[in-house]
Amino acid sequence: MIRLFRAIEFFLVEATVNIRRHGLMSLAAIAIVAFVFLLVGLFGLMLANLRSATEYALSEVTFFAYLDPRASLDDAHVLRMDILDLEGVKSAKVITKEEAFERIAKRLWGSRDLGNIPNRLGHSVRVTAIDPRDTLRLADRISGMAQVKNVVDARQSVSKLLEWARLVDVGVVVIGLLLALAVVGIIHSTIRLTLFARRREISIMQMVGATSTYVAGPFLLEGAFHGTVGSGIAAGLLFLGYDYLLGRAQYWTWLPLVREQQIIWGFWGMIIAGFVLGVLGSLFSVRRFLHRPVVV
């Protein structure tokens, strides 16, 4: 245990000395990491809002099951109960043929009163699925039920929305991975420069019998520092910026932005990712360096 504390003390002291001695290089690394994470964060915020908008649009997706015009209102209520029994149905509401007729009349002629025009519409049931992705499956299922004349399911719009949602998901993964690679690359290069600058010291350490852990430890800490501080700065700036935007956007009803509370994990995730990628970046550099012969 004492040895572990000594090792940690050694890593901390050496990493601090190194960061101070190569202050400009450290600053540059932190600035670049912060910039990349700022891009990651901006992209993430855009995607989070896009995703939320898509989910919202999908949650609004409903479809109608039209009954035969000869079916009674009781038939419509029976159908509604049958639909509610189906798995995955969030709500089902009966629209009477009178309500439907009034709506059409209002939409077409701007008046509810159509005088002598006979109402040949049937009753209908408006259905919403719990998961919008189940809409088409439910529509197919309901179209086969008794008394149902046809189902209008906005098939094209749902497919497009689902496709869009999938695209957003893939985009998150692909661009997230690319940006993560960029962060690893930046920290890898910075630590490699530091290692080169300290090659004499490292060779002396190896010569006097330091284990790889002792040689690598300070550099891993340094990488973790660059990654965490860089991503922390980016997360802080993004949080403040987004908070400001939310303040301004509270009256913009056309732009329902995601609240900070819903994405706070994203800011913490950025900081943790900065730490992990920082350690990974320096680990790659140190591993390659440790396997070289000891030459000053």
Partner: peptide, 25 residues
């Protein structure tokens, strides 16, 4: 031949370095 000392560290620190890097207290 070239001594291989750490230029920014004192005589004491250079010698102590050999002990520190192996975890001596």
């Amino acid at each position: 031949q070239d001594f291989r000392l750490l230029p920014h560290q004192t005589v004491f620190q250079n010698v102590a370095f050999a002990l520190r890097v192996v975890g001596e207290g």
